[in-house]
């Protein structure tokens, strides 16, 4: 039983680390700000979930688990809001997304704003 839990938390922690690193690489490889936000924020959420649930499996049913879950909730709550505010501020103050076809600024921009 302990073996199973250990292997599970190995898997979770490794998956979380992998996601995190891929997000960090995305922070470099992606060409403009908005896609970088995408890379960072999306991986952030799942990475936090995976790593913390890996830790929860190790902690068992204790106060530590409760605290871990609180940390996770805080992260889940604050990180998307921060990303949202960031993108909104950038968009509002005229940081243009990098577009393949610069003639169609208006259309693409609307797409971006509806997505963000």
């Amino acid at each position: 039983m302990e073996q199973v839990v250990d292997i599970l938390s190995w898997l979770l922690l490794l998956a979380g680390s992998f996601l995190g690193i891929s997000g960090a690489i995305g922070l470099f490889r992606f060409p403009d700000f908005y896609s970088r936000v995408h890379a960072a924020s999306v991986t952030d959420t799942l990475c936090a979930l995976l790593i913390i649930s890996g830790l929860v499996l190790q902690a068992g049913f204790t106060l530590i688990t409760v605290k871990l879950i609180i940390v996770l909730l805080f992260l889940w709550y604050t990180s998307p809001v921060a990303s949202h505010a960031l993108v909104k501020a950038a968009h509002y103050h005229g940081l243009k997304p990098l577009l393949s076809d610069s003639n169609e600024d208006e259309v693409k921009e609307e797409e971006v704003s509806s997505k963000s």
Partner: peptide, 17 residues
């Protein structure tokens, strides 16, 4: 300024904690 409802709601929920 543009309305910032998401930020405000989030902050409202977070501040008590």
């Amino acid at each position: 300024k543009p309305p910032e409802s998401i930020l405000q709601v989030a902050a409202k929920l977070l501040i008590p904690f």
